[in-house]
């Protein structure tokens, strides 16, 4: 009797066929496809995900996706970038048309729990601020009472803006556009008095304006914006790979492993920490379901976290953003990775 009951239960659950991805399903799908699909910005987020005139992608988010492709598939070129407007980005991830999202999405409670996403960990600690024309002679947010403020539709920026102005009893009119380009066009034409976004994003967009020097970005920050790569919460194995690829890049910076010396250190470093990360000792790659030299491949792609930051956003770039919170924990920042052990 009990046996029949059991099989009835199984049959019922089969009929319902809840399509929960089994562990490793996304990883297997990526491997079978031979290509990682990475959702990025529309190519205008300078320093994060930028598309140049020759159709080449660059930026911190792009370099992370390449490193992930290198770790996962052994080849940094096996990645396809899908430009997404912010308002479509989460739907694209939920529907499974991209494997991972690396396009300036902040890690928030609702996205993590209710929307069932999984955050890899902040690759950039940012905060929301405002960009205005210098000729306006305003220097702080309190001066913006009654202003029209440009903001992108459906972002946390839109909510933070409302919250901050409400709490501080300031009036404003939101001018909501779908794209960064429209927001910048509105700002240039004085359709709005200020454009609000993360400081990193503002610094990058300022470069695209006709006269970047005519604009000032406030030092004040009204929100915490931990920008993180985002995946669906359905494959813990994929989360492990994505997270440990990021940790590998951070640990590499801490251990002094760079794109230039990674091959050499992989063979000759006497440091046991480096040996474990490089797959010289232990089977850490195998435990992730990857080749044992996964981290070597990832680091060789675009260097360690520090190299990637400096090249795309820091001193080696046009954006010239200081590292600030995005420095290693040993240097006063928040960038920290658990040990490979």
């Amino acid at each position: 009797m009990k046996k029949y009951l059991m099989s009835a239960v199984i049959a019922a659950s089969l009929a319902a066929a809840p399509a929960l991805a089994a562990e490793g399903e996304r990883v297997a799908a990526v491997k079978a496809r031979g290509e990682l699909i990475c959702g990025t910005s529309t190519g205008t987020a300078i320093g994060l995900s930028t598309l140049d005139e020759t159709g080449k992608w660059s930026g911190l988010e792009v370099d992370y996706c390449r490193a992930l492709a290198a770790a996962l598939l052994g080849d940094a070129a096996k990645v396809k970038f899908v430009p997404l407007e912010f308002k479509n980005a989460f739907a694209a991830l939920q529907s499974g048309s991209v494997d991972i999202l690396a396009r300036g999405a902040s890690w928030t409670f609702t996205r993590d729990t209710e929307m069932k996403f999984s955050f890899i960990g902040p690759y950039m600690y940012d905060g929301q601020s405002f960009m205005v024309k210098k000729s306006r002679n305003v220097s702080k947010i309190a001066d913006l009472g009654g202003a029209s403020i440009c903001v992108s539709a459906g972002t946390t920026s839109e909510l933070n803006l409302s919250d901050y102005f409400r709490v501080n009893n300031l009036d404003f009119t939101p001018i909501v556009a779908n794209s960064r380009e429209q927001n910048l066009a509105n700002l240039e034409a004085d359709r709005c008095d200020a454009y609000t976004n993360e400081r990193g994003g503002l610094a990058a967009s300022r470069l695209g304006l006709a006269d970047p020097d005519a604009y000032v970005i406030f030092d004040e920050i009204i929100s915490k914006e931990p920008l993180s790569a985002t995946i669906k919460q359905d494959d813990p194995a994929f989360h492990d790979i994505a997270a440990w690829t990021y940790y590998a890049l951070v640990n590499a910076e801490e251990l002094g492993i760079t794109s230039a010396n990674v091959t050499e250190l992989a063979n000759s470093s006497p440091n046991p920490e480096v040996q474990r990360l490089m797959g010289k000792t232990g089977d850490f790659g195998t435990k992730l379901g990857l080749a044992n030299d996964w981290a070597v491949k990832a680091i060789a792609t675009g260097g360690n976290y520090g190299e990637i930051f400096e090249r795309n956003l820091g001193s080696g770039s046009r954006v010239k953003l200081s590292r600030g919170l995005n420095n290693l924990w040993t240097k006063g920042g928040l960038i920290y990775a658990p040990p490979v052990r």
Binding site: K87, Q94, A153
Partner: peptide
């Protein structure tokens, strides 16, 4: 369909 969808999912 735009902002509310993105905020609530």
């Amino acid at each position: 369909l735009g902002t509310s969808l993105n905020q609530t999912g």
